[in-house]
């Protein structure tokens, strides 16, 4: 098991490095940097001014070197210009060039500074991530049990009327992306023109004080889309298990139908959906971004949109790293969980 974990962690690390490098490269392309120079310096800078601005701040150097600095394995950039002013990557307020650390990258906990929010990236991310975690927690609490229930109920008697009805529901929800279901839900439940006015159409207030009224719609919107997918996987897996020979064995042993489902079918049927739920995370992030934008809930997804939309390079990098790591960790959990759920795979 230890070797397996180590190997997986190694692959994870490699993946993270590759992906962050791609993000770093894409965000540090010349047009992006020019835009950065103009937004940070002066909108009317000439090309030559832009070039020297970038030069002075160390942006004009080879990409690998800059990546190394950002990562914290290459000493930070220091530029002592002729007029005595100092430009250094690791220089923070209240530091001199002598007291500033040599390395300041992600590994040292220095995630950089957001040009849009005028705050440290690590602060922004930790706050926003917390808000999104709250959202996701409730999404999971709503989505997973109901999806499994839906799937198991539909799959245990394939082709029955219950199955047809529940399958139609789950197909419909998978066909409804968040920006469609969100719009429809707001129209029905929150519109001030017509509709029921049960809930609020925005979740801004839920950031401090989440309650049923302001938080249910965003949670439901994300949960619905993922739910249909998981339910269909569970149904397929359950239906397959129910036709297995060992279910017939159980039936011909005289086990009653509820017991067949609970004792014999369930564990086998849940192996596949478990992996699916875990692999849903990258897609859920999609939903998070949409829903947070739609309901104006200023979490991680919202931050991503702000960072990407405003060319906030360091924030965008931070957001990317975190989301990639979240995805990879869930994949690892899914692998380990799969091993534990499925006795056929032995771990030496």
């Amino acid at each position: 098991m230890a070797i397996f974990l180590l190997r997986r962690l190694g692959v994870m690390l490699l993946t993270t490095l590759c992906l962050t490098f791609v993000v770093f490269w894409l965000t540090n392309l010349q047009p992006n940097l020019e835009k950065l120079a103009k937004t940070q310096g002066n909108m009317r800078m000439t090309d030559a001014q832009v070039a020297s601005w970038l030069e002075a701040r160390g942006y004009a150097r080879p990409i690998l070197m800059k990546y190394g600095e950002w990562l914290g394995v290459v000493p930070g950039f220091v530029n002592l210009s002729a007029d005595g002013s100092v430009q250094a990557r690791c220089l923070d307020d209240g530091m001199t060039i002598e007291t500033a650390p040599r390395y300041c990258g992600v590994l040292q906990g220095e995630w950089g500074y957001s040009t849009v929010f005028r705050e440290d990236v690590s602060d922004i991310i930790s706050i926003r991530l917390g808000l999104t975690a709250k959202l996701m927690l409730w999404v999971m609490i709503l989505m997973v049990p109901s999806a499994l229930l839906l799937g198991v109920l539909a799959g245990m008697r394939e082709g029955s009327r219950t199955d047809r009805a529940l399958s139609t529901i789950s197909i419909t929800t998978t066909a409804t992306p968040e920006y469609v279901s969100g719009v429809i839900l707001i129209a029905v439940f929150a519109s001030s023109a017509v509709g029921l006015k049960w809930f609020k159409g925005t979740a801004t207030s839920a950031m401090e004080d989440a309650n049923f009224e302001n938080f249910f719609l965003p949670v439901l919107t994300i949960a619905l889309f993922g739910m249909g997918y998981i339910a269909r996987m569970t149904r397929a897996s359950m239906a397959e298990v129910m036709t297995a020979q060992y279910i017939r064995t159980a039936r011909l042993k005289g086990v009653s139908f509820p017991n067949i489902v609970m004792k014999h079918a369930l564990r086998n049927a849940l192996i596949a959906p478990f992996t699916v739920i875990m692999l849903q995370f990258p897609w859920l992030l999609n939903g998070v971004v949409i829903v947070e934008t739609l309901f104006n809930y200023k979490g991680f997804g919202w931050t991503l949109v702000q960072a990407a939309g405003n060319n906030d390079i360091e924030l965008l990098l931070g957001v990317s790293v975190v989301s990639v790591i979240v995805v990879l960790v869930t994949q690892l959990i899914s692998d380990i969980g799969y091993v534990y759920l499925n006795p056929r795979i032995s771990v030496s």
Partner: peptide, 29 residues
Amino acid sequence: TFVANLVLAFPVILLFYLLVTPEIVATGI
């Protein structure tokens, strides 16, 4: 498989934001 997993581990929305912005389009990637 490693490359495929690499792309799959990339949050789709982020990828879109990175690929489809005018600045990146301008580079011709």
